[in-house]
């Protein structure tokens, strides 16, 4: 299953709530302000690193670039909108709007 998160973890508990429901094999896609969770060296980084041990995490490149998010946490995969579509094709989807 693909879980999409578009909120910043610093102002909103959506990502934290999402991660509670993640199981083995769940793929997480961070879009919009959700990509702020991908920045290394934040209070949220260790939670992301922990998540990466059992789940794939993707971010949308356009959202990373627009926000100057750098460097991103090791192991997070950068993709584009076509990659987003491919993830949707491979997985059922839930958006944590």
């Amino acid at each position: 299953m693909l879980h999409i998160v578009n909120k910043s973890p610093f102002t909103n508990n959506t990502l934290t709530e999402c991660l509670r429901f993640v199981t083995q094999g769940t793929v997480i896609l961070l879009i919009e302000d959700g990509v702020l969770a991908a920045k290394s060296g934040t209070v949220y980084s260790s939670k992301m690193t922990e998540t990466l041990k059992k789940n794939e995490v993707y971010v949308i490149k356009a959202d990373i670039l627009a926000r100057g998010v750098s460097p991103i946490i090791d192991g997070i995969k950068v993709t584009d909108y076509e990659g987003f579509v491919d993830l949707v094709e491979k997985n059922k989807v839930h958006s944590w709007v």
Binding site: N6, I31, E32, D33, I60, D80, Y81, E82, V85, D86
Partner: peptide, 26 residues
Amino acid sequence: VIEGPYNNQASDSAYHFITAALARGH
């Protein structure tokens, strides 16, 4: 799409996603 234009990025994300999906032949 459940948020309005400009105020939220939702509409832009949806548009880019759809354009990519069409390019992928969906």
